[in-house]
Design a protein around this nucleic acid. Structure first.
Length: 281
DNA sequence: GGTGCGATCGCCT
DNA sequence: GGCGATCGCACCG
């Protein structure tokens, strides 16, 4: 047996062993089957109401043009509530905008609507989860604009790191014991693994879902524009001019960003110093 | 630390 | 039948 084949079979074994051990997949299946109606009218009334205004972001937040929404996501907190009640939290530190029809790197390029990308055409705030490279998932959220969506690329883990580590460990040959916190969610498929975001989330509404939602960070209301780096997107090299457009956004200097772009950071720095000079003179 | 390579399969042409 | 909005790992310096 080759190394590759060994790798493949051990992955399958560990998954099926997990299935038998804790029964989670069965629960997931039940959850997925019943999630077509996930609106919980009482949810927004729960715990936050007593102390201060609700921090969960509602429908109106998602009604923004794609680039605006991609930037607005930065600093917000994605919350994933597992079936056992555990809440996993991560601050969004990196996103990409996929603009829809005109954007050749988008799944919805040319206005092409298929079974897979239907969520991109649904109302702003709709979750789009798709499989990539046969073995990974990516999560997007639709925005204003026909077929436009924001890809969530990286999170800073805030709570539930041990659970995240366990979820990531299941997919790795060497387990995840050596993973530092900053390595748990520093990539679009890594965050899906760490937060147990499955395909059944596709087409669900981030504004009303009971198992996943977005919150304002009470400690960090808004991210200053000067802290946001705009750079070209990752993994879209084959799409000509669209590969070079600055549609990826990340928090400058944040250790959880998946891929740094030093050129973009330098440019931003020189621009801001020029502006300072102008202001001074 | 950086780089290069191969896995793996659903989706689309 | 070809490709991909990625990742982990081996290898190198």
């Amino acid at each position: 047996m080759t190394t590759r084949k060994r790798k493949k079979s051990s992955l399958h074994q560990s998954e099926s062993a997990g299935d038998r051990a804790d029964g989670e997949p069965l629960k997931r299946l039940i959850q997925c089957q019943s999630d077509t109606n996930t609106l919980d009218h009482h949810h927004n009334l729960s715990p936050y109401f007593s102390m201060k205004a609700p921090v969960r972001l509602s429908d109106s937040f998602f009604h923004q043009p794609c680039v605006d929404l991609a930037k607005a996501f930065l600093g917000k907190v994605l919350v994933r509530k597992l079936t056992d009640g555990t809440e996993l939290r991560g601050r969004v530190v990196e996103t990409e905008a996929y603009l829809g029809g005109e954007d050749k790197a988008s799944h919805s390029a040319g206005g092409k609507r298929t079974e897979r990308n239907t969520a991109m055409f649904m109302k702003p705030g709709t979750i789009y989860v798709y499989p990539i490279y046969g073995i990974y998932l990516c999560m997007n959220v639709s925005s204003q604009g026909e077929g436009a969506a924001v890809l969530l690329r990286s999170l800073e883990p805030l709570s539930g790191q041990d659970v995240m580590r366990g979820l990531r460990a299941a997919k790795r040959k060497a387990g995840a014991k050596n993973l530092k916190d900053k390595e748990l969610c520093n990539g679009p498929s890594k965050l899906c693994q760490a937060l147990d975001i499955q395909r059944c989330f596709d087409r669900r509404d981030l504004a009303t879902d009971t198992e996943m939602w977005l919150e304002r960070d009470s400690e960090q209301e808004t991210v200053p524009a000067g802290e946001v780096v705009s750079a070209h997107r990752i993994g879209v090299e084959s799409h000509g001019e669209w590969a070079t457009k600055p549609l990826r956004f990340y928090l400058r200097g944040h250790p959880c960003v998946s891929v740094l772009n030093r050129d973009a950071e330098r440019q931003m720095h020189s621009q801001s110093s020029n502006e300072t000079e102008k202001t001074v003179s």
